[in-house]
């Protein structure tokens, strides 16, 4: 086990023959995928291909019907998203990331609040600390967020997206999963996020990123995994493929 873990080319995260059905619909059908340290794998496919379903199983939001998920070579079974975060997998979800009625720091720290003890008995939220750290995180993106104390439904879609992404940086994760992270962002802001993702990869973090934007995918991904109708069409190295080939895989389902 330990020698295995030290092997350099062993994948950090692997999914083996995983399945998920919604009623009669097979949303994911026998998918296997490996992600190594320090690599960005892009997950692409048409609408309804099963991308979000696949990552929800990896991050503990859904339980697979069958198959295995291995983290650092050991099988894991997450009962809740918190289990996955505790094991070092951080996720940004598609459009479901935030609680619109909470303010910015409350959203960023939701589920892992900073607290201190009062009277040696009760835990109280450390609002100043959460606020200061939120500001520090957001400064990385150079996006103006004029109010932190207002409910986030008052913010623009891109500002909200940035807040959701900044949650990734709270802990020191080994795996980062992002469902359409650049979808709501402007050119400049999207650039910031891509730089961040590349930066994280260079620090040795494994990144799984869903995107419909092939331009972005070809700019930063090391490998591209294509899903169609719940099945994995293939995984190709970005350097060894062309955009036409990937488009053909997405639409025709042929490698």
């Amino acid at each position: 086990m330990i020698t295995e873990a030290l092997e350099p080319h062993q994948p950090l995260l692997s999914v083996r023959d995983i399945d998920k059905s919604y009623g009669g619909l097979r949303a994911i059908d026998g998918v296997s995928l490996d992600i190594k340290r320090g690599e960005i794998v892009a997950l692409v496919g048409d609408n309804g291909a099963g991308k979000s379903t696949l990552i929800k199983m990896i991050c503990g939001a859904l339980r697979p019907d069958g198959g295995e998920i291995l983290l650092r070579g050991a099988p894991v079974s997450f009962g809740s998203p918190k289990d996955a975060t505790d094991s070092g997998i951080e996720t940004v979800h598609q459009s479901l990331g935030l609680v619109e009625t909470l303010n910015v720091p409350e959203n960023v720290f939701l589920g892992r609040e900073k607290t201190f003890r009062v009277f040696g008995l009760f835990n109280q939220l450390d609002l100043p600390k959460m606020r200061a750290e939120t500001r520090r995180l957001l400064e990385k993106f150079r996006i103006s967020v004029p109010t932190l104390n207002e409910p986030v439904f008052r913010l623009s879609g891109g500002q909200r997206q940035t807040i959701a992404i900044s949650r990734l940086l709270l802990s020191e994760p080994d795996v980062i999963i992002m469902d359409e992270p650049m979808a709501a962002l402007g050119v400049d802001e999207g650039r910031q996020v891509m730089d961040l993702v590349v930066n994280l990869r260079d620090q040795g973090i494994a990144v799984l990123m869903i995107s419909h934007n092939l331009e972005h995918v070809f700019q930063i991904a090391d490998r591209i995994a294509v899903l169609k109708n719940g099945r994995l069409v293939g995984v190709v190295a970005t350097a060894e493929t062309s955009r036409e080939a990937v488009v053909a895989m997405i639409t025709l389902g042929a490698a």
Binding site: A61, S80, P81, T85, T91, L110
Partner: peptide
């Protein structure tokens, strides 16, 4: 905070842990 988060968006709160 958790009460308010579940009331605001149950699924997002669940995904946040």
């Amino acid at each position: 905070l958790h009460c308010r988060s579940v009331g605001g968006n149950r699924e997002a709160a669940r995904l946040a842990g």
